[in-house]
Amino acid sequence: MQAFTDIQPKSLSGQIYGQLRHQLMAARLQPGARLKIRELARNLGTSETPVREALLQLVRDGALEMKPGYYIRVRRLTLREYVELREIRLMLEPHAAVKALPNIDEAFIDHLETVHETLIRAELEKDYPAALLANYEFHFSVYRRSEMPQLIEILERLWIQIGPLLNFLYPFGHPSYDGPHQHLHVLAALRAQDAEALASAFRADLTEGGRSFLSYLQEIDAREGLRGA
C-alpha cells in the first residue's frame, strides 16, 4: 500500500507538468505571466504539492523562472537566447521531418492540410491564439511521426522556452513569404516523398516566415536597451 502512496503524487505532478508544457509550447502562456501555485491548484482541483513540483521542474527546464519572494513566472527569452535556439531548431526540425517521411500517408497529409487551413483562417479572423495553436500542431504533428522520442523530447524542451515568445508574432511579427506559404511547400514535399524539399521547406518556414518576427524582437531589444541607458 505504501508504494501506491508514493506513486500517486508523482503521477499527478507529471500530469500537471505535461499540461503546462503543452500550454507553453502552444503559446498559451504569455512571457512574464505569474503562475500562482494556490490558484493553479484550485483550478486543477488538486493540492498545492504536485503543482509546486511541476512548476519547479519547468524552472529547471528553463521555461519558467523563480523571482525574489519565491514567485514563479513565465521566462521571456532574450534576443540572444532566441537566436541561439533558432539555430538549433534549424538543424533538428528539418531532420525530424525527414525522419517522419516514411511514416506519413495521404490521410495524414489531408489532416495536416486541414490544420494549415485552420491556421490561415485564424490569421484572417485575427484569432491569434488559434493561429499559434494550429502552427504548433502543424509542426509537431510531423515531427512526432519521426518515431524518435529522444529527438522529440529535445524539440519540446526548445519549444517550451520559445512558445511564450511567439505571442509577439501577431500582429507585430506576422509571418510573410516571398511566394506561397512554406506550409504549402511542406505539404507538396510530403506528397512527393521528397526529403530534400521537405527539409528545405521547414528551414524556410523558420527563416523566411520568421523575418518580421526577428525584426520585431530586435526592435524590442533596442527599445529596452535605450530605457536601461
Rank of each mutant, 00 (worst) to 15 (best):
Y17M: 10
R34Y: 06
A97C: 09
I72M: 11
R28G: 14
L166W: 14
V98A: 03
E65G: 09
P31Y: 10
A222T: 13
A97R: 04
Y82W: 15
G225W: 03
A54F: 05
K126V: 06
M91G: 12
D6M: 12
H22S: 10
Q193W: 05
E208W: 01
A130H: 12
K36R: 15
G228T: 05
A63N: 09
A54P: 09
P171C: 02
G14V: 08
D205W: 02
H111Y: 14
Q218H: 05
L132G: 09
K10V: 13
A63L: 05
I37M: 01
R21V: 06
P149H: 02
K99N: 11
A26L: 02
I88C: 04
I109K: 00
S215K: 02
R21D: 02
E196P: 01
Q30P: 02
Q2I: 12
Y177N: 08
H174E: 14
I152F: 05
F168D: 15
H181P: 10
A195H: 11
H181D: 15
A222L: 08
L92Q: 12
L169C: 03
L79S: 00
F172K: 09
L58F: 03
I220T: 06
L217Y: 03
S176I: 07
S176M: 08
Y17E: 15
S200L: 14
L24W: 06
L214G: 01
L166R: 07
P149G: 02
E153C: 02
G45T: 07
L217C: 01
Q30T: 10
L64N: 04
A26K: 00
L112C: 04
R28S: 12
Q150Y: 11
G210C: 08
K126Y: 09
L77E: 11
S146T: 08
H116I: 08
I7F: 13
E48N: 06
M66P: 05
M148E: 13
L92A: 10
I109S: 04
G62S: 05
P102T: 00
L187I: 06
D110I: 00
A26N: 07
Y82G: 15
R60A: 12
V51K: 02
E137G: 01
P175K: 00
F140N: 07
A122F: 07
L151S: 06
D127Q: 09
T49H: 08
R157H: 09
A3V: 15
A131W: 02
R89S: 13
Q218K: 03
A107M: 05
P149Q: 05
I160H: 00
I154K: 00
E219W: 03
V186N: 08
A134W: 12
A122W: 01
S215V: 00
R52S: 13
L77N: 13
L90P: 05
P129D: 11
F213M: 14
L77M: 10
A192K: 03
H116E: 10
F172Q: 13
F213N: 07
A122L: 11
T114I: 08
R203W: 02
E65H: 06
Q23K: 05
R38H: 13
A131P: 04
G18W: 11
L151V: 14
R203M: 06
R76K: 03
A195C: 08
Q150T: 15
P68L: 00
Y136N: 11
T49P: 04
M1H: 11
R145D: 09
I162D: 12
A189I: 07
L112Q: 15
T46C: 07
T78P: 00
D127L: 04
R73D: 11
E93M: 05
